[in-house]
Design a protein around this nucleic acid. Structure first.
Lengths: 231, 231
DNA sequence: TAAAATTGTGACAGAAATGTTACAGATCGC
DNA sequence: GCGATCTGTAACATTTCTGTCACAATTTTA
């Protein structure tokens, strides 16, 4: 077991912070606490915690705002973030994903659940900020210029295909159901047939070409997965 | 649609147990019952249920005490617990939180409420808690990427074979009858010939290959068992 | 040892899931 | 308004999976 992980808890309500802190300490983590975003930012820069637990709703600077700032700063863009959110709001989830949130926990949650999710995220340290160029097997996605290219050639993708590819490239090695993809890529509250996902998958595969289409794998009975490891 | 969830109901009053059991069976769960903590503990170790419904007040060993024991044992610390409590006592809730209770239901409650809470907890806990990578003798099952591999090569499994393997890998060293397997892996309310299990076992063994097929052992007259220990 | 259970195995047809194509309406820049 | 894209669906084509059956192989029983 590696060194003790430092977790920064950011929430303006002291009781919640403490409850979380107790649970985490019992699970063998080391906790830092901050009751506002400014202080949190300071502590993050000074202490470089291994993860930040961030309350969505906070006075002044909101959690999501802080998340954006952390992501846009080279120095802090690697640190995984778990968002604590009071409502089960799909819109928020989508925005959160864009801001590079690694996971969500909806209040109320049990300490055990928190610890489990936290461990899961730590295990999967995918320190890719959202605004970072992602490269996979000479497939390059540049969110800044909003273009994807393979072997130097720009891919001709529609907006949806681009978002789909972006989502996949930042969430590799994980199987997603059609519903999840609709949630994450289309945005939760649209009603679209599940089969529509298949069609877009097909378009994306076609655009990727023979050389790269293997990256998008179908997981029969479940959905799809993006992985460099061949099926 | 995963395997059917097994719920253990622990309460010393038989009518309450039955009422709960009926409600849960109707909702598609599979129920086990225990009328005291000792028996419950035994059943939990033997059957590894997906969740425990635990009455707070019981003769001899109380519910909260059993919860603590379950939590402190590595083997059972993952199993979610919902506490059935007669009074709406805040103190208890706090103690319960520390003991890792996942939710509370205050008696009297409606069956619908119970099922709703139970599903909610399963939804929250199951994906992350159970989504642990399982590894057995260089056989790896990763529920997140929904992939099983042996010696680095992905196994080619159909959905049912995958679920079967997943069930076995998380329920090792215990023999299951064909009926039980149909309940757990197929889902209780389908009518399928028992021999069908044999066929899937055969397919799974084939997919595992010579090197690993020994893991699935035939228990003549009973069913099958998954174990690294040769018979 | 023969008969009876029990389990292993291969084949197959129907079912289910996914791939693929075509198309009509929507959207957008001009 | 107009052409070019892009989208979501429906319809049809393919692939893959499933449950059974019939028969073989193995173990138990008598």
């Amino acid at each position: 077991m590696g060194p003790v992980k430092q977790i920064l808890i950011v929430d303006d309500e002291a009781p919640i912070r403490q409850m979380i802190a107790v649970a985490l300490e019992m699970a063998g983590f080391h906790c830092l606490e901050a009751d506002n975003a400014q202080l949190a930012h300071q502590m993050i820069i000074n202490n470089k915690p291994d993860m930040v637990l961030l309350d969505w709703m906070m006075p002044k600077v909101s959690g999501i705002e802080l998340a954006r700032r952390l992501r846009s700063d080279e120095q802090t863009s690697d640190i995984p973030i778990i968002m604590l959110t009071a409502r089960d709001d799909e819109d928020h989830k989508v925005h959160g994903l864009e801001a590079g949130i690694d996971d969500y926990i909806t209040k109320p949650f049990s300490p055990r659940e928190l610890v489990a999710r936290l461990k899961s995220v730590l295990r999967r340290v995918t320190p890719k900020g959202v605004d970072q160029v992602v490269e996979v097997d000479s497939l390059i996605l540049d969110p800044v210029s909003h273009r994807a290219s393979a072997d130097g050639n720009t891919l001709d993708l529609g907006p949806t295909e681009y978002r789909l590819l972006q989502f996949f490239m930042t969430h590799q090695d994980r199987a997603y159901s059609r519903t999840q993809l609709l949630d994450m890529v289309w945005g939760g509250n649209v009603y679209v047939e599940e089969r529509t996902v298949d069609v877009h998958i097909r378009r994306l595969r076609k655009a990727l070409g023979k050389r790269h289409e293997y990256l998008i794998q179908t997981v029969r009975g479940t959905g799809y997965r993006f992985s460099t490891q061949k099926p």
